[in-house]
Protein backbone atom coordinates (compact mmCIF):
# COMPACT_ATOMS: atom_id res chain seq x y z
CA UNK A 1 0.00 0.00 0.00
CA UNK A 2 2.85 2.28 0.89
CA UNK A 3 4.57 1.71 -2.47
CA UNK A 4 1.35 2.32 -4.45
CA UNK A 5 0.87 5.56 -2.58
CA UNK A 6 4.46 6.54 -3.26
CA UNK A 7 4.17 5.62 -6.92
CA UNK A 8 0.97 7.62 -7.10
CA UNK A 9 2.55 10.73 -5.64
CA UNK A 10 5.55 10.20 -7.92
CA UNK A 11 3.33 10.31 -10.99
CA UNK A 12 1.46 13.30 -9.65
CA UNK A 13 4.75 15.17 -9.14
CA UNK A 14 5.75 14.37 -12.69
CA UNK A 15 2.41 15.60 -14.07
CA UNK A 16 2.54 18.70 -11.92
CA UNK A 17 6.11 19.29 -13.02
CA UNK A 18 5.01 19.11 -16.64
CA UNK A 19 2.16 21.50 -16.06
CA UNK A 20 4.50 23.83 -14.25
CA UNK A 21 6.89 23.81 -17.17
CA UNK A 22 4.12 24.68 -19.56
CA UNK A 23 2.78 27.44 -17.34
CA UNK A 24 6.27 28.87 -17.17
CA UNK A 25 6.97 30.91 -20.21
CA UNK A 26 10.69 30.68 -19.60
CA UNK A 27 12.59 28.00 -17.79
CA UNK A 28 16.34 28.01 -17.40
CA UNK A 29 17.99 24.93 -15.95
CA UNK A 30 21.61 24.76 -14.79
CA UNK A 31 22.83 27.20 -17.39
CA UNK A 32 26.59 27.39 -17.77
CA UNK A 33 28.65 29.59 -19.98
CA UNK A 34 32.33 30.21 -20.29
CA UNK A 35 34.46 32.18 -22.72
CA UNK A 36 37.32 30.63 -24.72
CA UNK A 37 39.87 31.44 -22.08
CA UNK A 38 38.00 29.20 -19.67
CA UNK A 39 36.55 32.14 -17.81
CA UNK A 40 33.24 30.90 -16.42
CA UNK A 41 30.88 33.80 -16.72
CA UNK A 42 27.66 31.96 -15.84
CA UNK A 43 27.90 29.20 -13.28
CA UNK A 44 24.82 27.02 -12.88
CA UNK A 45 21.91 29.41 -13.28
CA UNK A 46 18.43 27.99 -12.71
CA UNK A 47 15.47 30.25 -13.06
CA UNK A 48 11.87 30.36 -14.29
CA UNK A 49 9.34 32.98 -15.25
CA UNK A 50 5.58 32.93 -15.58
CA UNK A 51 3.58 34.66 -18.24
CA UNK A 52 2.92 38.27 -17.35
CA UNK A 53 5.70 38.40 -14.79
CA UNK A 54 8.22 41.21 -14.66
CA UNK A 55 11.57 40.09 -13.31
CA UNK A 56 14.38 42.55 -12.71
CA UNK A 57 18.00 41.42 -12.53
CA UNK A 58 20.44 43.60 -10.62
CA UNK A 59 24.04 43.13 -9.70
CA UNK A 60 27.53 44.58 -9.92
CA UNK A 61 29.27 45.13 -13.27
CA UNK A 62 30.65 42.00 -14.82
CA UNK A 63 28.42 39.62 -12.91
CA UNK A 64 26.99 38.22 -16.13
CA UNK A 65 23.55 39.83 -16.24
CA UNK A 66 23.76 40.99 -19.85
CA UNK A 67 25.41 37.75 -20.92
CA UNK A 68 22.53 35.86 -19.32
CA UNK A 69 20.03 37.88 -21.31
CA UNK A 70 21.95 37.32 -24.52
CA UNK A 71 21.96 33.57 -23.94
CA UNK A 72 18.20 33.56 -23.74
CA UNK A 73 17.68 35.02 -27.18
CA UNK A 74 20.42 32.90 -28.68
CA UNK A 75 22.90 35.69 -29.26
CA UNK A 76 25.44 33.77 -27.18
CA UNK A 77 26.24 30.07 -27.20
CA UNK A 78 26.10 28.14 -23.90
CA UNK A 79 28.29 25.41 -22.50
CA UNK A 80 25.79 23.57 -20.36
CA UNK A 81 22.20 23.47 -19.19
CA UNK A 82 18.90 24.08 -20.88
CA UNK A 83 16.70 27.00 -21.81
CA UNK A 84 13.02 26.26 -22.40
CA UNK A 85 10.62 28.70 -23.98
CA UNK A 86 7.03 27.59 -23.40
CA UNK A 87 8.35 24.13 -22.65
CA UNK A 88 10.47 23.80 -25.79
CA UNK A 89 14.25 23.68 -25.81
CA UNK A 90 15.29 26.76 -27.78
CA UNK A 91 18.54 25.15 -28.83
CA UNK A 92 16.98 22.03 -30.27
CA UNK A 93 17.14 23.26 -33.85
CA UNK A 94 19.93 25.75 -34.48
CA UNK A 95 18.60 26.57 -37.92
CA UNK A 96 15.34 27.74 -36.41
CA UNK A 97 17.02 30.29 -34.17
CA UNK A 98 15.38 33.15 -36.04
CA UNK A 99 11.96 31.64 -35.35
CA UNK A 100 12.67 31.57 -31.62
CA UNK A 101 13.88 35.16 -31.78
CA UNK A 102 10.57 36.30 -33.17
CA UNK A 103 9.07 35.28 -29.86
CA UNK A 104 11.74 36.95 -27.74
CA UNK A 105 12.24 40.66 -28.21
CA UNK A 106 15.34 42.53 -27.11
CA UNK A 107 16.04 46.21 -26.56
CA UNK A 108 19.70 47.20 -26.47
CA UNK A 109 21.46 49.78 -24.37
CA UNK A 110 22.66 51.50 -27.55
CA UNK A 111 19.19 51.44 -29.13
CA UNK A 112 20.62 50.06 -32.41
CA UNK A 113 18.07 51.64 -34.68
CA UNK A 114 18.94 51.24 -38.35
CA UNK A 115 20.41 54.63 -39.27
CA UNK A 116 19.64 54.49 -42.98
CA UNK A 117 15.88 54.05 -42.44
CA UNK A 118 13.20 56.37 -41.14
CA UNK A 119 11.57 55.67 -37.80
CA UNK A 120 8.52 54.17 -39.46
CA UNK A 121 10.65 52.00 -41.73
CA UNK A 122 12.64 50.82 -38.73
CA UNK A 123 9.47 49.66 -37.00
CA UNK A 124 7.76 48.18 -40.04
CA UNK A 125 10.75 46.26 -41.46
CA UNK A 126 10.70 43.09 -39.36
CA UNK A 127 6.95 42.39 -39.14
CA UNK A 128 6.65 42.58 -42.91
CA UNK A 129 9.84 40.76 -43.81
CA UNK A 130 9.98 38.15 -41.06
CA UNK A 131 6.36 37.57 -40.08
CA UNK A 132 5.07 38.27 -43.56
CA UNK A 133 2.23 40.38 -42.30
CA UNK A 134 0.19 42.68 -44.48
CA UNK A 135 2.05 45.96 -44.89
CA UNK A 136 -1.01 48.17 -44.54
CA UNK A 137 -2.00 46.58 -41.26
CA UNK A 138 1.53 46.75 -39.95
CA UNK A 139 1.81 50.44 -40.74
CA UNK A 140 -1.45 51.11 -38.90
CA UNK A 141 -0.25 49.23 -35.86
CA UNK A 142 3.16 50.92 -36.03
CA UNK A 143 1.57 54.34 -36.07
CA UNK A 144 -0.69 53.43 -33.18
CA UNK A 145 2.27 52.25 -31.11
CA UNK A 146 4.33 55.32 -32.00
CA UNK A 147 1.42 57.47 -30.95
CA UNK A 148 1.22 55.65 -27.62
CA UNK A 149 4.83 56.55 -26.86
CA UNK A 150 4.32 60.07 -28.17
CA UNK A 151 6.49 59.84 -31.27
CA UNK A 152 4.03 59.64 -34.15
CA UNK A 153 5.13 63.02 -35.51
CA UNK A 154 8.67 61.67 -35.88
CA UNK A 155 7.71 58.75 -38.07
CA UNK A 156 9.43 60.18 -41.18
CA UNK A 157 12.51 61.36 -39.31
CA UNK A 158 15.84 59.56 -39.25
CA UNK A 159 17.38 58.19 -36.06
CA UNK A 160 20.14 60.78 -36.08
CA UNK A 161 17.52 63.49 -35.67
CA UNK A 162 16.15 62.01 -32.45
CA UNK A 163 17.36 62.27 -28.89
CA UNK A 164 18.54 59.22 -26.97
CA UNK A 165 15.29 58.90 -25.07
CA UNK A 166 13.26 59.14 -28.26
CA UNK A 167 15.43 56.56 -30.00
CA UNK A 168 15.03 54.15 -27.12
CA UNK A 169 11.27 54.50 -27.16
CA UNK A 170 11.31 53.72 -30.88
CA UNK A 171 13.50 50.70 -30.16
CA UNK A 172 10.91 49.44 -27.69
CA UNK A 173 8.12 49.94 -30.23
CA UNK A 174 10.20 48.12 -32.85
CA UNK A 175 10.40 45.09 -30.57
CA UNK A 176 6.77 45.30 -29.45
CA UNK A 177 5.29 45.23 -32.92
CA UNK A 178 6.65 41.71 -33.32
CA UNK A 179 4.21 40.60 -30.57
CA UNK A 180 6.88 38.79 -28.57
CA UNK A 181 6.06 36.38 -25.75
CA UNK A 182 8.94 37.72 -23.73
CA UNK A 183 10.75 41.05 -23.83
CA UNK A 184 14.38 41.40 -22.76
CA UNK A 185 15.57 44.86 -21.74
CA UNK A 186 19.34 45.19 -21.39
CA UNK A 187 20.22 48.30 -19.37
CA UNK A 188 18.14 50.37 -21.71
CA UNK A 189 18.64 53.63 -19.83
CA UNK A 190 22.34 53.29 -19.02
CA UNK A 191 23.40 55.41 -22.02
CA UNK A 192 20.79 58.11 -21.57
CA UNK A 193 21.02 61.55 -20.06
CA UNK A 194 19.16 61.60 -16.74
CA UNK A 195 16.29 63.78 -18.05
CA UNK A 196 15.47 61.18 -20.67
CA UNK A 197 15.54 58.15 -18.41
CA UNK A 198 12.08 58.79 -17.05
CA UNK A 199 10.28 58.99 -20.39
CA UNK A 200 11.67 55.58 -21.34
CA UNK A 201 10.96 53.91 -18.00
CA UNK A 202 7.42 55.31 -18.10
CA UNK A 203 6.84 53.27 -21.25
CA UNK A 204 8.17 50.15 -19.56
CA UNK A 205 5.90 50.66 -16.56
CA UNK A 206 2.91 50.86 -18.88
CA UNK A 207 3.97 47.69 -20.61
CA UNK A 208 4.18 45.96 -17.24
CA UNK A 209 0.70 47.19 -16.40
CA UNK A 210 -0.56 45.76 -19.69
CA UNK A 211 0.78 42.34 -18.78
CA UNK A 212 3.92 42.10 -20.92
CA UNK A 213 6.32 39.41 -19.71
CA UNK A 214 9.64 41.14 -19.23
CA UNK A 215 13.13 40.35 -18.04
CA UNK A 216 14.89 43.58 -17.21
CA UNK A 217 18.53 44.28 -16.42
CA UNK A 218 18.93 47.71 -14.90
CA UNK A 219 20.86 49.93 -12.52
CA UNK A 220 17.86 52.13 -11.79
CA UNK A 221 16.93 50.91 -8.32
CA UNK A 222 13.84 53.07 -7.80
CA UNK A 223 12.50 51.89 -11.11
CA UNK A 224 13.28 48.27 -10.27
CA UNK A 225 11.38 48.63 -7.05
CA UNK A 226 8.36 50.05 -8.87
CA UNK A 227 8.14 47.69 -11.81
CA UNK A 228 9.35 44.30 -10.56
CA UNK A 229 7.24 41.36 -9.48
CA UNK A 230 10.46 39.65 -8.52
CA UNK A 231 14.04 40.82 -8.08
CA UNK A 232 17.06 38.66 -8.82
CA UNK A 233 20.47 39.61 -7.53
CA UNK A 234 23.37 38.17 -9.48
CA UNK A 235 27.02 38.21 -8.52
CA UNK A 236 29.98 36.36 -9.99
CA UNK A 237 27.85 34.44 -12.46
CA UNK A 238 25.41 33.04 -9.91
CA UNK A 239 21.99 33.97 -8.62
CA UNK A 240 22.73 34.99 -5.06
CA UNK A 241 19.32 36.20 -3.97
CA UNK A 242 15.80 36.02 -5.35
CA UNK A 243 12.87 37.73 -3.66
CA UNK A 244 10.08 40.26 -3.95
CA UNK A 245 11.14 43.88 -4.41
CA UNK A 246 9.99 44.85 -0.90
CA UNK A 247 12.04 42.06 0.62
CA UNK A 248 15.11 42.70 -1.51
CA UNK A 249 15.34 46.45 -1.15
CA UNK A 250 14.05 46.53 2.43
CA UNK A 251 15.62 43.47 4.02
CA UNK A 252 18.37 42.04 1.81
CA UNK A 253 19.43 38.64 3.11
CA UNK A 254 22.95 38.13 1.78
CA UNK A 255 25.96 40.26 2.67
CA UNK A 256 26.82 40.77 -0.97
CA UNK A 257 23.34 42.11 -1.66
CA UNK A 258 23.65 44.46 1.27
CA UNK A 259 27.04 45.63 0.01
CA UNK A 260 25.69 46.15 -3.47
CA UNK A 261 22.68 48.16 -2.33
CA UNK A 262 24.95 50.30 -0.18
CA UNK A 263 26.78 51.55 -3.27
CA UNK A 264 23.63 53.44 -4.19
CA UNK A 265 23.32 54.98 -0.81
CA UNK A 266 25.19 58.12 0.18
CA UNK A 267 25.52 59.16 3.77
CA UNK A 268 25.40 62.91 4.18
CA UNK A 269 28.67 64.28 5.57
CA UNK A 270 28.04 65.40 9.10
Amino acid sequence: MFSVFEGGSGIREKVEGLELKQKNILQVEHLQKSYDNHLMVLKDISFSMEKGEVVVIVGPSGCGKSTFLRCINLLEPINGGQILLEGNDIRKNPKEAHVIRQKIGMVFQSYELFPHMTILENVVLAPCMVQKRNKGEVILEAEALLERVGLLEKKEAYPRQLSGGQKQRVAIVRSLIMHPELLLLDEITAALDPEMVREVLQVVLELARDGMTMLIVTHEMEFARAVADRVIFMDGGRIVEESSPEEFFGYPKSDRAKQFLNTFHYEALV
Binding site: L75, H98, R101, G105, F114, A126, V130
Partner: peptide, 19 residues
Protein backbone atom coordinates in the same frame (compact mmCIF):
# COMPACT_ATOMS: atom_id res chain seq x y z
CA UNK B 1 25.63 44.93 -32.76
CA UNK B 2 23.58 46.10 -35.73
CA UNK B 3 23.58 42.49 -36.89
CA UNK B 4 22.47 41.47 -33.41
CA UNK B 5 19.66 44.01 -33.50
CA UNK B 6 18.45 42.45 -36.74
CA UNK B 7 18.81 38.96 -35.28
CA UNK B 8 16.83 39.90 -32.19
CA UNK B 9 13.97 40.87 -34.50
CA UNK B 10 13.99 37.38 -35.95
CA UNK B 11 15.64 38.28 -39.25
CA UNK B 12 17.73 35.73 -41.08
CA UNK B 13 21.40 36.33 -41.92
CA UNK B 14 20.70 37.01 -45.60
CA UNK B 15 17.96 39.49 -44.79
CA UNK B 16 20.14 41.27 -42.26
CA UNK B 17 23.01 41.50 -44.73
CA UNK B 18 21.03 42.97 -47.60
CA UNK B 19 18.70 45.27 -45.72
Amino acid sequence: IQTEAGMSLGMKRMQIFFH
